[in-house]
């Protein structure tokens, strides 16, 4: 079997802060095949963004990182900054959460797309501009030939996110990371953007990591789902398995918070009780144990390992739930 597109091996990322070392990503491993979509789900602060920046090797100076990230057979952790720059754009790209702040306010839309094309594809400025208009059209931006000369503040949030997507797909990367691409947008626009991402991914045969804290987003759109808690993957499976055969109590709590179509209106979402763990002094055993209603002494003293229960369904729990319990 050929090597998967992306292999992340025991990635750890911690930040040195005044209060101590924040272990934001704490031993994450997974693989992603070409053209497939992996959903990464978790509460705010669970380390999703840090994981995506670790994959892109875009970490702030106070970050300590270890582990291995291989993209198409190359170990990114061993590459020079210069070599990495050549990969960012043509091989791997990212769409950020907040389209309001992720575009440069003083540069035109065209300049922001065009520079990727001139930098990586060696296009002339003129060709880059023409291509930018095409890209804007392909992400469904109305009047692309007008918009290309405008500045970000002249566009709505949804339109800006389309621009950000156009930038990300400009060089047809093998891997696209979408870090909560719709969280900052109106509900009505969210589905459109997600559909756009799915369409582009299919057309260009990109692999995608779709980061979200919303299980509902993952449901119809990902091949596999990884659930993160306190910097670790606590459960991972094909989307179908994960929804049908939830093993980890935290996953089940996340699932319980999705609004369903058949819910009575105004049903209160079941928020997960308790606070996310302290990443500087994590709990001794299972990180979820302070909030888990099944926790026992073993849970509180020994961390459970992430184990494969067959068919690629992995979870880390001493007392996995059965199907009935999840019901």
């Amino acid at each position: 079997m050929s090597e998967p597109l992306l292999t992340v091996e025991n990635q750890r990322t911690a930040f040195a802060t005044g209060r101590g070392l924040v272990r934001a990503v704490d031993g994450v491993s997974f693989t992603l095949e070409r053209g497939r979509t992996l959903g990464v789900v978790g509460e705010s602060g669970s380390g999703k963004s840090v994981l995506s920046r670790s994959i892109m090797r875009l970490l702030p100076p106070n970050a300590r990182s270890s582990g291995e990230v291989r993209l198409g057979g190359r170990d990114l952790t061993a590459m020079s900054e210069k070599a990495l720059r050549a990969l960012r754009g043509p091989e791997i790209s990212i769409v950020f959460q907040d389209p309001m702040t992720s575009l440069n306010p003083v540069m035109t839309i065209g300049a922001q797309i065009g520079e990727v094309l001139t930098r990586h594809l060696g296009m002339s400025r003129k060709a880059a501009k023409a291509r930018s208009v095409e890209l804007l059209a392909s992400v469904g931006l109305p009047q692309p030939d007008v918009r290309v000369d405008q500045h970000p503040h002249q566009l709505s949030g949804g339109m800006r996110q389309r621009v950000a997507i156009a930038i990300a797909i400009a060089c047809e990367p093998a891997l696209l990371i979408a870090d909560e691409p719709t969280t900052a947008l109106d509900v009505t626009v969210q589905a459109e953007i997600l559909d756009l991402l799915a369409r582009q991914q299919a057309e260009r045969n990109m692999a995608m990591i779709l980061i979200t804290h919303d299980m509902g987003v993952v449901a119809g759109r990902c091949d596999d789902v990884a659930v993160m808690y306190a910097g670790r993957i606590v459960e991972q499976a094909s989307t179908e398995d994960l929804f049908r055969d939830t093993r980890m109590p935290y996953t089940s709590a996340l699932l319980a918070s999705i609004p369903r179509l058949d819910d009575p209106p105004h049903r209160k979402l079941e928020a997960i009780a308790g606070r996310p763990p302290d990443l500087i002094h994590p709990p001794a055993g299972c990180a979820f144990s302070p909030r888990c209603r099944y926790a026992d002494d073993l849970c509180r003293s020994q961390p459970p390992a992430l184990e494969d229960a067959g068919r690629g369904h992995r979870f880390a729990c001493w007392r996995p739930m059965t199907m009935e319990a999840a019901e």
Partner: peptide
């Protein structure tokens, strides 16, 4: 939101 952004341009340490 705790989005991390590099606070200076430097290779990851």
């Amino acid at each position: 939101m705790a989005d991390i952004t590099p606070d200076r341009l430097e290779g990851s340490s």
